[in-house]
Each structure stands twice: as structure tokens, then as C-alpha cells.
Write a protein that binds this DNA or RNA. Sequence first.
RNA 1: GCGGAUGUGGUGAAAUUGGUAGACACGCUAGACUUAGGAUCUAGUGCCGCGAGGUGUGUGGGUUCGAGUCCCUCCAUCCGCACCA
Length: 998
Amino acid sequence: MDYNFQDIEKKWRAFWAENKTFRAEDNSSKPKFYVLDMFPYPSGAGLHVGHPLGYIASDIYARYKRLQGFNVLHPMGYDSFGLPAEQYAIQTGQHPAVTTKTNIEGGVDNQGNKIAGYRNQLDIMGFSFDWDREVRTSSPDYYKWTQWIFKQLYNSYYDTKADKAQSIDMLIAEFDKNGNAEVNATHDCDITFSAEEWKAFSIKRKEEILQMYRLTFLADSWVNWCPALGTVLANDEVVNGVSERGGHPVEQKLMRQWSMRIKAYAERLLTGLDTIDWTDSIKDQQRNWIGKSVGAAVRFPLWRGTEGEDHKDLDPIEVFTTRPDTIFGVSFMVLAPEHPLVDQITTAEFAAGVAEYKKQASLKSERDRQADVKNITGQNTGAFAIHPFTGEKVQIWIGDYVLASYGTGAVMAVPCGDQRDWEFAKHFGIEISNIFEGKDISEGAYTEKDAVIANSDFLNGLPAPKAIKLAIYEIEKRGIGKGKTQYRLRDAVFSRQRYWGEPFPVYYKDETPYLVDDKHLPITLPEVDKYLPTEDGEPPLARAEKSAWNHFEGDRMEYNTMPGWAGSSWYFLRYMDPKNDNEFVAKEKVDYWQNVDLYIGGSEHATGHLLYARFWTKFLYDLGFVPFDEPFKKLINQGMILGTSAFIYVLSVKVKMKKGYQGTHYMAMLPWQVVIPKQMYLEFNDNKFNQTNQLLEELSKTDYLDESIEIDFESINKNNIRPYHISVSLVNSSSEVDIVELKDWLGYSADELDFSLIGDKYVVGHEVEKMSKSKYNVQTPDELVTKFGADTLRMYEMFLGPLEQAKPWDTKGINGVHNFLRKFWRLFNIDESGNAQLSNEAPSKEALKTLHKTIKKVGDDLDRFSFNTGVSNFMICANELTDQKCNNKQILEELVVLLSPYAPHVCEELWVKLGNEAGTLSYAKFPQFNEAHLVEANIAYPVSFNGKMRFKIELPTALTPKEVEAEVLAFEQTQKYLEGNTPKKVIVVPGKIVNVVM
RNA sequence: GCGGAUGUGGUGAAAUUGGUAGACACGCUAGACUUAGGAUCUAGUGCCGCGAGGUGUGUGGGUUCGAGUCCCUCCAUCCGCACCA
């Protein structure tokens, strides 16, 4: 009987769903294991072959752990709030909840497109998810608890002495008692008040102050505003100055926004990385993002004698430096052009220059400023500061290499020790003093920390590390500053001016925010007439009628919604207890399941989701809600599966009037778009114009031209060629596309293209790119499952190569994997009535050897997540057993268990055919490796001469190295390779190799 | 510029602790069979060479009896960060 994968897979999927085979038990004596995938955003495009890669790997691992006797939690859900559904809603008027539901559950959208549905697409892959635990971040049952966690953050501040989050009530009590002078907290409060002053503040004023301490707070802050998306974006959502989604321009705007005081956790987010098993690449990205630098904050007072101007009412300039040891090398200071002090200190003489420079700087976008690194610019202010140690006058400049947003927006410039300062000084002719013993600074700054300090008073003769410590000590002693650690990590903007997100559990009275009481949660999304901002520019929720809110309080509700990362920062906890209506997760459940043992997902979340989830976990840990402070113990980033795009090439040709027809003016006409052969495109790209001119001559014969116009050959060059994406589904295996089908696919845009240069077949160009709908290179798993079955697809995706590696999608090899499964099936000798014809005798020695070799290798491969080599080992095993004509039941039964994590459907079927109870395979025992079966009487020793392998010699395994040496030297071929030399030495590695040294 | 990763046949790749480089699969070549299939089977397939043999894991060097693997140098590709004081 043939391997009928379609019937088999359908049957077992139904069986698993009906029997809830993969239900995880919350109360179990078994050890737990938590395998998690990054849950998908359910887009209308559906799953492509890249999505399941990680899911297949995690599913294989989850099944493996079940066979090893673990109680496995392997859930799946949807990150179902987000921009695409909302954009779609704006276009079509359809409620995003409806679109989202269709995208998950399948159906037909209001454009008439059939949507397969994520759930159906996931189901056909045979994943062993416990679907009873599904979560959707957009479900009110879920976001009720996202709102609740927000409230906990609001009601907390970060106590830097206890190094943990504490209740805001403790802070208020302290304010009542002592004011804020002695408070150890992470905050943005720049005023000091006594208990009496605090008590005298109005409620509104008190709240304004508390906002500067709360872990989530409302503040006017500079945010990344994306006009095209109509919302603010977090720093990790802005890449190279444009929005991560859609690539729209982003500008800086001062707005009143909710933020998360993630800064408070900077140090713990950094040190926590050492305790988790993630790749160095992701850890480094997070370290980089947090950006810790250790140094000192130093105050430079302003010099007060500048030509009658008096600065005595101005604060000193505070700078941050990581090299306080070089403070005697300071020869000037540089402020960011936006620094608030600039206008106040600039002297009359330089006022015009400063104003001009500030204007120039403000015209440049942040991106331009970053791109233009080589060009040194700056402007003297005419003002001076006083060096806090030497008392000397130090010039104050402004320059846009100093960023207003980092540190204090001011630097003490040490040209001998910092290359940018050095270049600035050289450019403007400022003195460069050397404070390093025996270092040449004529060609550039000396930036290493291994120099000995000189010309620096009390620091003379000290190496940098010691000098740094002593300098900080002196700075603090003299009260001119203090040791300080600075982080690049900025507080994360937490509100979005969008509809399709979690509403805040917040209302306003007199423009002061208040939390909604727990008993009113969740605040559900109100209905609105349009998903667009109001005419006053308020977010879409401002459109909601008072009655549209399920709870309304105060003057108004909060109009912003939460960002995408809110729901995904804690979803792994909800899977443990998805239906709990009283708590976000029950204590005993989180105590049992603990944190995620294995997390698989893409590396694009390095500084977004993965950092925020760690932050929230640490916060929940501080408050005692969870017993661990890192969410994901081991993380594997699966590589992206890339698509192969297909291109046609379009040449834009200009035409001009021939001489004698209305003079020689260019005719204003539509560009003539000619589809050119790939060969021609390649020649153009190599600048081989001569050859292509022949093709262009053919062009000049086409109907498009008449006696009055001709091609303007001078306008033709490679910049006029545009590769044009076409659907890969049109292309056959020889890279050809049928022109009739192509025109049909292009629809009306085909009318704008001239196909006269090509025949009825066209050879397309290929390029490997990210899979995306707009590139028409998406391969869905569905059709492959229909053709080959899910078991084949699962194994094939693993067989492609190491999980972490990016790889282009190519179905060429899928037959090989499919053939393996057919070969495996044939081993069972299944007759026409469906019964396996197998031998019950004791297995042969060689079959046992093959089996145990495979058990060992496959088991080891799984332990190190080497899924691709696992597949190879199954193939080798099947090949060997076929050669051996093995039909032994005992052997095959163990193999079925071994293979079942990779190919669960066919193994369930065979398991039953072997006489086992349906559904018990998933909880069978993983085969036990027995080394005894691998022991052989003889071994074929490879014999090398000077490290070159020459021949093999079959010898008993039991021989001692001395005996092996004697056998090898006595062997007839040995003389030939010795070439008359006497061996100097013979190396024998027992069981491995012999090397004869001459 | 800094940090991380990766370089092995025509292709995807394997080699887990320094011990037979290229397993396994695709593709290709030749053949067999046939109910002509995306079927199966046999043999071959790193490169040069008729062969003996030589040569071969990005480059150049080193350590070692022995290096894809360890050390140093340089090159290329990809990813992240980037006047971060």
C-alpha cells in the first residue's frame, strides 16, 4: 500500500483536535518544560513559508521533550492589535476587529478575497499546540490585564536604594514626612521641596510631581512623530530616520505623552543579560541600546568678566565625561547648538555668527547631521568658562557634533585625548595641549587608556585607570561634580494616536490623569464613526461619544491607545492561565511553569519586544507577582527564509522630433516603456552599449515611430532601466514566463508597456530578497502541503540548513525529503489491506547497530538544536535498513518514536499499524541508546603517512597501540609509502587513526 | 570607524573534543525498467590528469605527528550600532 499522506494527515489532525492530545496539565508531578514561539501578527496576507520555520523547530523540540517525560507547555496565540488592520479599516471602513477575526479564523474579506486564516494554516502543519490556551492581545479578556499591569506601573516608582520598584504610596509618605531631598529614586524632578511645601501643594501640583517619579508617566517630551502614520513611534520603531513600518519620514515633536521609565531598569537589563542563554549578537544589540558609560559629571562655572556682561545668575555648565583623568587637557568647551545656555552667554561680537550657526543646524535633519560626520563645523560664542581645577579661562564654542539629547548636551573638549575634539581644535586653530607622557599627538588624538598622565597636577605619573579614580575622588571632594553613570537608553514612549490598540485605564479631571478603578476594567474600545484623527488633530478615540465608552469618568477618557509592544510584553505569562478572570496569572500556576525554557523567534525584535518583555518581567518580579526576573531563559533566532523574486526589465526611451519637423525641440510625450530582454539588461548594466545598439536598432523599426520622430539615443543609459517585480507564480522552472499570461497578470498596466522586442516567451531575472506581498515572491506552505504533505514540508524546512541561518527558499530539494518518507513507509511492508507485514524475531546485529547509531545522533542533534543533521541521520538510517532488507518490528517501532517529532502524522499512522493504541505515541518513551550495539570486532584503521591518508587496514578493535603499530609496519603497502625511509615515529590513536611519521 | 556573524563542490550543506574533508540531499552524466511518472533501480560525480598521482575548506603565515577546526595577518559578504563625550 502506498504512502497516502493526504488521508493520513487529515485523519490525525482531526484525532489530535478531538482528543486534545497536546493539552498541558497545570498540576503535574512531571517536570515542566515551556517551549514558546513568538506569536504572529495575523495579517491578511497569511502565513508564508518563512513563518513556520521557527514553529516547526519549536514543535519538534516540544514533542521531543514530551517523549522525554516532560510536561510541556507549548501554546500559540495572536499579537492581534496593530497598524495594518487599522490602515485597512481606514480604507474600507471595516472594523479592525472583523478583519482581525477573518485573518485568524479564515473567511472572505469585504473585497471578496478568500482568506485562508492563520489558524487553518497553522493547523495543517500538524503543530502540537495546546489550543485551549490561545490568547489574542486584542481580546478584552486579555487586555483587561494589560491595563491592570499599566496601573501597577503607574502606582510604582523605582527605589534606587532597594534597587527595585516600590509602591508610590511609600514615596508619598516620604514626601509627607521629609519632602524629596533625601529620596533615592529614578525621576525627572528638578526641584527640591520640604514636607511643608509638599503638603501645601494643590492636588494638581502634587500629581505633576508624582508623574516625575511614576514608572509610567505623562510628560511633555520630544517624540518621534510620523505624520504619514499619524502617530508617535518608540525609538526602536524608527530606523535610519524613517518609520520601521512603511518607511515614512519621522520628525521630532514636543508632545504630551505616556512614557515608561525603562531607564530605571537600565543597569538590571544590562547585568541580567549575563544570566540568560541568548546569542551574543542579540545581547550586544541590547547592550549597545542601553549604552552604559561610566565617568563623572563636572561643573564648569562661567567666567564673569566678559566685557561688562555678568553671568552670575547663570548656572555652571555641567558636562559628562568618561575620561575625568584628562580634565587638565581641556582647552575649550562645546555646547550643542540647542543648549539652553547658548543665547544667554553669547557675546555681542559673536551673536550674529551664533544665530546663523543655530539656524543652519536647525535646518539639518537629525539624519543629515549624522550623515555629515566628516564636515567639521562650529562657532565661537565669545564666552568663557573657568576650569574648575586650574582656574584658567576656557573658550566656549557651539558645534553640532555635540548632541543635545545625550548627556548634558555639553562636553569638555580634550583635543589630545578625543579624536573629534582634536579635529575641531585643528580646524579652528585652538591650542592642543598634551597631557600624555611620551605620546605623539601631532597627527591625531591618543585615545587609548594605557598612557601615563602628565602636566596634570595631582594626576601626574598615574596610568589612566588610577587617574580616573583619583580624579573622581578630587572632583567630589572639591564639590565640583561627582562620579556618574550615564545610559543611552531613553524612556520609552507608550502612547499611540491610533484606534486599534489597548485603551488606557485613565480618565482626566481638570487635565489631571486618574486611574480607573479595577472593578471597571477592562475599558473596552469604544465604537467610532471613522478610524481617523479628529479635525482638531485628536486621536480617533476622541470621536467616541460619551455613551460609547463602557466606562466613562471625569471630564474625558484618555484618547491615546497603547503601543504594539504592550500586549506582547507579558503574553507568555497569560498562556499559563489564559481564562483567569480574577488575576493576570494565578500564583501557583506561574510558580509551577516558571519562565520560558526555549523561545524561538526572529532577531528583528532585539531592541523592541525582547527588551520590553524583560523590563515588565523585572517589574512584576519586584512586586512579587512572578518568581523570576528574566522571561526567556534560552532564545534562538531563526534565520529568515528569503524569497526569489522574478523581474522583467523595462527601458524608458525618449523620442525626439526628426530634423525638419517643428524644429529640434524634444517632444513632450509619455515616456515610451519598452520591455527588453534580460540579456540586453545585463549588457546595459555592464555598460556594453555597442552591442546593445543592434537591439536598439530593432527598436527603431517598431510601429511606435513614424517618419517624424526618432529615438533619442543619447538619453539611453542604464539609469533608464527599471527592474519590475512580477509574480513568481507565472514563472516556470526554466525561468520563462508566457507573454500572454504575463499581460493578463499585469492587467491595465500592460497597456503602458511595449512588448514588441520580445517573443511569446520571456526569460525573467531573479534576485533573492525578503519575502513580501509587494515583491510578488511569497511562497505559501499551503500548496506544498497539498502536494507533498505536512510531514514532508516540516522535514524539508529543517533540512534546508541550520535554523539560525538565513536561506533562500527553493523547493528543488523537497522531493528528496518526500522520497525519504516513502522509503521509510516501504520498510513496513504494508499490504493492500493496510497491515504491516513484519518480522517478530530478534533483530539482527547490523539492524541494531543502525538503530542505535541513529538514536544517539538524532538525540544529540535535538539537544543542540541541530535539526538539519537530524533529518540527514534519518535518511542514512532508512537507506541502511533498506539495504539490509530489515523488516523487524522491534527496530521499526523504536524508529517510529524517534521520527515522530519530525513527521508526526505518518508516525501516528505507523504506530497504530504496529498494534499500539491511537494517540499514545506523543507520550511514548524516547528510545534508549545502548552503546553495546555499536561495538565491532574489527575496525578499518585509516593509515596516514606524514598526515596524508593512504590506505585502510582492517584490524581487531581489541589490539593495543603497540600491536596496531606492528601490524601496520608489517603490512605490505606500508613499504611502498615509506619509500625506503625508516619511520621516525608511529602515532596510534586507538579506534581512530594511525599516522606514520617519516 | 566600532561590535557581532559567516566564508567548504554546480547547489543546500555535513564534519559535536584537533584524527579518513565533502556525509545526506538536490542537480548533472551514463545505463536499466516501464502501465511515460514530479515513478523506481544501477553506476558515476570536488578540481587537474588517460593513468600513477597531484591538489583542495576565502588569503598569507604559525602551532602540531596531524588543522575546515587552535593562534596571528589580510580580504569578502551579511547584520547591528555610529560624532554617545
